[in-house]
Design a protein around this nucleic acid. Sequence first.
DNA 1: CAAACTGTTTAGACTCAATCCAAACCTGGA
DNA 2: TCCAGGTTTGGATTGAGTCTAAACAGTTTG
Lengths: 143, 143
Amino acid sequence: MSRLQAQTVETMVGENGLKMTPQRRIIVEYLQSALNHPTADEVFHAVNEKFPMTSRATVYNTLNWLKGSGLISEVFEGGVVRYDPNTSNHHHFVCRKCGKVEDVGAELVGAFQLEQAAALLGSQKVENFEITIRGLCADCRTA
Amino acid sequence: MSRLQAQTVETMVGENGLKMTPQRRIIVEYLQSALNHPTADEVFHAVNEKFPMTSRATVYNTLNWLKGSGLISEVFEGGVVRYDPNTSNHHHFVCRKCGKVEDVGAELVGAFQLEQAAALLGSQKVENFEITIRGLCADCRTA
DNA sequence: CAAACTGTTTAGACTCAATCCAAACCTGGA
DNA sequence: TCCAGGTTTGGATTGAGTCTAAACAGTTTG
């Protein structure tokens, strides 16, 4: 799986007795197009520009459903919860100064593999892992 | 640096124009003795058993000061913020079922080194990294 | 020894994110 | 078109965390 796909969502909706609504469609579209990792509040405002009167409850309902379905994931950095529409195997770089969260492709961290993690821990069952790298982003480094 | 040391705290207190108070001492003692990763609420209740009338503000003040001084760190898992008195280079295993957070020694993940991370990312300045491994803990695996 | 100074604690008010709820509404199938 | 059941709404509610003013404690100064 890679980025959030509208097609995937439409399919899952039908298979789970759920209904596709305009609000849900717009939330999914916004997440698809987002290049960063939006907060629930950013989603709320973006959705309301295209579809006024959308309540926060709807935004949270949809985000939680997508999260539960594994179509998006949650990232917590700097005391703020963000949503990540990229569910492909990847990791994060967090800037200590500006707080920006950047994606790091899994191919870049080939040195650490899931099989290795599984071998390291005896009694636990390892399913996946994620790496958070911290430092200064390109902009803050030069500034 | 490894586990939170009372000695270290006493020293830092003096060097920063801060005062060591009974409340702070008890909070530090509790964190030292904690085997898990307590929440702010757990710290609040534990401290109040030994020193009643300690307010939440004091607990948060102390936790934030310790965090700012790098003596403890914050972990966010399952929608809950926890504090980690172990500041040695280590990583975390999170159980998908019960939510428990276990420490994983850095020596176990030797395959991935900070130098490698630095080489992978071009323009960013890498300072440190942490790995979160997910799966089923020993208890939940057998149950 | 007391006053003054500085940093701390307290309790409660306050903020903000997130959830809950009942009533109105909409979607998809018959 | 009608109906049943899932969904949306907006307001109330919860809960973590912060802020504030007043009381307090430890130190230093006169």
